[in-house]
């Protein structure tokens, strides 16, 4: 009779042992975990590809906060030659956002992602139509014929990349745009120039400390 009790303890032990590691897994999810963010070789990179700190940017071309942050980031990267930036287009706000993201990624095949990205981010406002986006891309100096043929030829790759970006954003628990991963930190909101400067400095200190 008493033995059932002991058995009960044993079962308890099993449950505790099984649940304890799972709690940790739950807590990690939604925060920074480098294993959840595989290095995606097809995501466009700007700044110094060999930089010591990587900023991963999740953004949308119809998101005003993204536009403010993109300008600040551009200014910051110009002032810090050791920063690597990975752009993860995550079009979630409007239909035109996805259209813009595809244009920018297609431009990447002729090495012009940075130009098109900057051109789209510079259009002020948040209800930018596809036509206005196309206009801005044309004015950015990109070879439009090449862009169109690349867009057709690589449609599947581009869509797969957008899908992966969305998956990763979801895995990280991001709720909206913009969001930045700066070294070991996650910042799920807009950043200004001074903010970038500070987070990157903190990231360097943290990484030197051995993390």
């Amino acid at each position: 009779m008493k033995s059932n009790l002991l058995f009960a303890f044993a079962v308890c032990l099993v449950l505790v042992a099984a649940i304890a590691p799972s709690r940790r897994a739950v807590a990690t999810q939604g925060h920074v975990d480098s294993s959840a963010m595989p290095d995606d070789p097809s995501a466009p990179v700007t700044g110094n590809p060999k930089g010591d700190v990587t900023i991963i940017e999740f953004s949308d071309y119809n998101c005003p906060f993204c536009k403010q942050s993109a300008a600040a980031l551009e200014k910051f990267v110009a002032s810090d030659s050791k920063v690597r930036v990975v752009h993860k287009d995550w079009p979630v706000l409007t239909d035109a956002s996805a259209y813009g993201a595809r244009l920018a990624l297609a431009a990447g095949y002729q090495g012009k992602y940075a130009e098109v990205h900057a051109a789209l981010m510079r259009i002020p406002g948040m209800r930018i139509s596809k036509d206005r986006m196309l206009e801005a891309v044309k004015a950015s100096g990109v070879d439009m014929d090449r862009l169109e043929s690349d867009q057709k030829a690589h449609a599947q790759e581009i869509d797969a990349l957008l899908e992966r970006n969305a998956e990763q954003a979801e895995t990280l628990g991001l709720q909206g745009t913009p969001a930045f991963l700066v070294g070991p930190y996650i910042v799920p909101s807009a950043l200004g120039y001074e903010d970038f400067k500070q987070v990157v400095a903190d990231a360097r200190t943290k990484m030197r400390g051995g993390d």
Binding site: R24, V187, D195, Q198, V199, D202, M207, D211
Partner: peptide
């Protein structure tokens, strides 16, 4: 980025959030 025990990463997030201004 080095791979570390997840708790340190979570701590990093928390510390990072506190350090960030505004």
């Amino acid at each position: 980025m080095s791979r570390a025990f997840p708790w340190t990463r979570i701590l990093a997030v928390v510390v990072g959030l506190i350090l960030l201004p505004g």
